[in-house]
Write a protein that binds this DNA or RNA. Structure first.
Length: 599
RNA sequence: GCCCCCGUAGCUCAGUGGAUAGAGCACCGGCCUCCGGAGCCGGAUGCGUAGGUUCGAUUCCUACCGGGGGUGCCA
């Protein structure tokens, strides 16, 4: 567990005392690592320090545990310390701890669960995710990266880092020209060849551009023969081939029916239109990026690629062979050296990657990439590139997520390359809803391939645990509303006698609520959104049990005497419910999943 | 060929070297005179195989078996 003192003042104090005890017992220093025992009867919190210190101390774990207990200055709030199992030290807290928790939660409000770091430990983290090519609509898989990247960013923010959510827009290179050709040909109703992009979205972009710019957009214009100085020049990496009016661009001849100048000009506009559509869909999904980083503007037009190549040469990590410039990535674990500049002078995409890495590093001190498994081959070369640029490897973190299988009733939804038969992210979001899409991806680890079955996921049942969690939240809200309607006198939090909360269901709920800060810290550290999602499910479960077993409001037909008798306990429970609602809302909020007031 | 991921209950999945491995779904049986039954309670079954490291392995290492995916060109 990271820094308990930042998460919970009581745990922080206990943590410090354990450290002192280790020192006094002349045991090696160690992180006390407080955790919640699996079995409630073992207490509220436990430490495994003795287990982990057994080896360095060369003693058996129970002996070490005894030493810790003997030297521990037990805080007042701990009622009972015991040694159990192989060497756990268990702590049972006084009821006062739980009572204070209710106050802490309600006072902290939306901030409960989040923590700050000391200034010097705060990092500027650049989180890049999705970054799908703007040559077509987002598919369902992109939804996974969107939801996960966004939630990881939120978790990092919740643990005190400063985060930038960034989308890298591949709007340079031959794919832009090809995209431009695709738009032009589609607009003209002509046949497309195998290399072209197709589909309903392309047609829509073509129509949109025609509307905005008129038919002349697709016709030859004066500048088309001389692209130098134009935005479009950066589309073709060096622009050289076009300066002489040559229609051959690099190695790809291009489509003879579309002048490369037109293709480049339309491509730039088309790619931007497609990017805008992507931005809109992501916004619908609740994901908003801070930075949309244009490869063309940021890396090519700015000269950053050239600068980076020059820097790599200066560093002596690049060499020329057969007219091409290679980067020595094998020095840092890559399979083979990678080409930066082709023999014809055009830089590779890899050169852009290097320039981008360099640019990001100037803006952040920790780089996080979330990539799909189809890009796992990039990891080694990207890390090597970072090393060649002199960046500390531990500050460049690349995570690979397994891909998504889109199904309907167990049958794969085939992605036909031929026109319009794919199901895109926007359609899925419309069909099943934002919260379902996001939660479905967030509750599973990145290493697991996700089956996204439209039929299963559309069901509003426990096939969809998001409803279970949201239902708990809505239920609490309903309860509080009902209390108001019936004129229940809940008083102020300070007036409630929380010591009355001693039912097992109440204690379990309190104990679950106390865990949120720890769960958030762990989930952030591991970049594991499923930790938080599973916790939310558990918390919802403890609330449902509490709700079933513990009445808050007297029955509608209760007599005055019954009502009065139940009032004080009801007040305590009312505030417990208020706090539980807050914790549920915070957990859902960090996942960016809605916490509805009613369903 | 090379690389990555996975293998835990009938199914879908949690479980960052520690206590009796957990949820949901499905199946069976219970629970509302009462705050939302989208709920609660009870019930069976499991760490792919074989080694290794360790006081202790579902977790780490090796091999094998099975499943999924990626990649082979100076994109």
């Amino acid at each position: 567990m990271a820094r308990p003192d930042l998460l919970d003042p009581v745990l922080g104090d206990l943590d410090a005392r354990i450290r002192t005890a280790l020192d006094a017992a002349e045991l090696p220093a160690a992180d006390p690592d407080l955790e919640k025992p699996k079995q409630p009867e073992h207490g509220d919190w436990a430490t495994t320090a003795a287990l982990r210190l057994a080896k360095p101390a060369k003693r058996n774990p129970r002996e070490v545990a005894q030493l810790i207990v003997d030297h521990l200055d037990v805080p007042d709030v701990v009622e009972e310390v015991s040694i159990a199992g192989p060497g756990f030290v268990n702590f049972r807290f006084a009821h006062r701890y739980h009572e204070e928790l209710v106050h802490r939660v309600i006072e902290a409000g939306a901030a409960y669960g989040s923590s700050r770091k000391p200034q010097d430990e705060q990092r500027r983290v650049n989180v890049e995710f999705v970054s799908a090519n703007p040559t077509g609509p987002l598919h369902v898989g992109a939804g996974r990266w969107a939801a996960t990247g966004d939630a990881i960013a939120a978790l990092l923010e919740a643990t005190g880092d400063e985060v930038v959510r960034e989308y890298y827009v591949n709007d340079a290179g031959e794919q832009v020209r090809i995209f431009g050709e695709s738009v032009v040909l589609t607009a003209a109703g002509e046949d497309l060849s195998d290399e072209h992009y197709r589909g309903a979205a392309i047609a829509e972009v073509a129509a949109e551009l025609r509307e905005q710019h008129g038919d002349e957009l697709f016709e030859r214009q004066p500048g088309d023969d001389d692209l130098v100085g134009d935005d479009a020049a950066a589309v073709v990496h060096d622009g050289q081939a076009l300066r002489d009016g040559d229609t051959d661009v690099g190695t790809a001849a291009g489509d003879a029916r579309v002048h490369p100048g037109i293709a480049a000009r339309v491509g730039v506009l088309g790619v931007e239109a497609m990017r805008q559509r992507i931005e809109d869909v992501l916004h619908e999904l609740g994901v908003d990026f801070d930075v949309w980083y244009s490869e063309r503007e940021g890396l090519h037009a700015s000269g950053a690629v050239e600068e980076t190549v020059a820097e790599l040469r200066e560093r002596g990590v690049a060499y020329e062979t057969d007219g091409a410039l290679f980067l020595q990535t094998t020095e840092h674990g890559d399979d083979k050296d990678r080409v930066l500049v082709r023999s014809d002078g055009r830089p590779t995409y890899f050169a852009s990657d290097c320039a981008y890495l360099r640019d990001k590093w100037s803006r952040a001190d920790q780089l996080y990439y979330l990539l799909g498994a189809d890009h796992h081959g990039y990891v080694a070369r990207l890390k090597a590139a970072a090393a060649c640029l002199g960046l500390p490897p531990e500050r460049v973190e690349i995570r690979i997520g397994q891909l998504v299988n889109l199904l309907r009733d167990g049958q794969p939804v085939r992605m036909s390359k031929r026109a319009g038969e794919t199901i895109d992210l926007d359609e899925v979001v419309d069909e099943v809803g934002v919260d379902v899409v996001r939660y479905h991806f967030l509750r599973q680890g990145l290493d697991t391939a996700v089956d996204f079955d439209l039929a299963v996921v559309a069901r509003q049942s426990m096939d969809n645990p998001v409803y279970y969690v949201q239902y708990a939240h809505a239920r609490i809200n309903s309860l509080l509303r009902m209390a108001d309607e019936r004129g229940f006198d809940h008083g102020e939090l300070g007036d409630a006698d929380l010591s009355l909360l001693d039912h097992p269901a109440e204690l379990e709920l309190l104990s679950a609520m106390a865990q949120l800060p720890v769960i958030v810290a762990e989930a952030a550290e591991l970049r594991a959104t499923q930790r938080l999602a599973r916790y939310a499910e558990e918390l919802a479960g403890t609330f449902h049990r509490f709700y079933t077993e513990c009445r808050i409001l007297a029955p509608a037909d209760a007599t005055e005497e019954e009502r009065a008798a139940a009032e004080e306990l009801g007040r305590a429970r009312y505030w417990l419910a208020v706090a539980a609602k807050q914790v549920l809302a915070n957990a859902l909020g960090l996942l960016r999943v809605g916490a509805p007031e009613r369903m």
